[in-house]
Simulated scan of single mutants.
Amino acid sequence: KRHDLSRNLVRVWVQKYETGAFDDDAAAADTIQAYEARIAALERLVGRQALELEFLKGALRNGPPPRSGPMSVITGPAASLSPRDAG
């Protein structure tokens, strides 16, 4: 089977390889691959956060009505200490 690569093109490639011209291309390819991996990780994180937001919005819509008094997003309503608990 005959390939249509010119011998001159192969010589140019060999020259570029010998002078290290392809090293920059390899480094650029590695950088692009690292960026693509980072982008994919960030896209997964954004997707998880979007799902969490939708879940929490649904919980707020469908949950019990809020109680009066100060509330923390993390711990819920503030605890009131009775005289028995304070001692």
Rank of each mutant, 00 (worst) to 15 (best):
S6D: 11
S6I: 02
L9Q: 11
V10A: 11
R11K: 15
V12I: 12
W13N: 13
W13V: 14
V14I: 15
Q15N: 11
Y17G: 08
Y17T: 09
T19V: 09
D23P: 02
D23C: 06
D24Y: 07
D25N: 12
D25F: 11
A26V: 12
A26D: 10
A26H: 09
A29G: 07
D30F: 00
T31G: 04
A34E: 11
Y35N: 07
Y35A: 03
A37F: 04
R38I: 03
I39D: 04
I39N: 01
I39R: 03
A41D: 13
A41T: 05
E43V: 02
L45G: 01
V46C: 12
R48P: 00
A50E: 14
L51D: 12
E52Y: 04
E52M: 05
E54P: 00
L56T: 00
K57C: 01
K57M: 03
K57N: 05
G58E: 14
G58D: 15
G58F: 04
G58I: 05
G58M: 12
G63P: 02
R67Y: 01
R67Q: 09
R67S: 07
R67I: 02
G69L: 04
M71Q: 07
S72V: 02
I74F: 05
I74G: 03
T75C: 04
T75I: 01
G76S: 02
A78N: 06
A78C: 06
A79Y: 08
S80H: 09
S80R: 10
R84P: 01
G87Q: 14
G87A: 14
G87N: 13
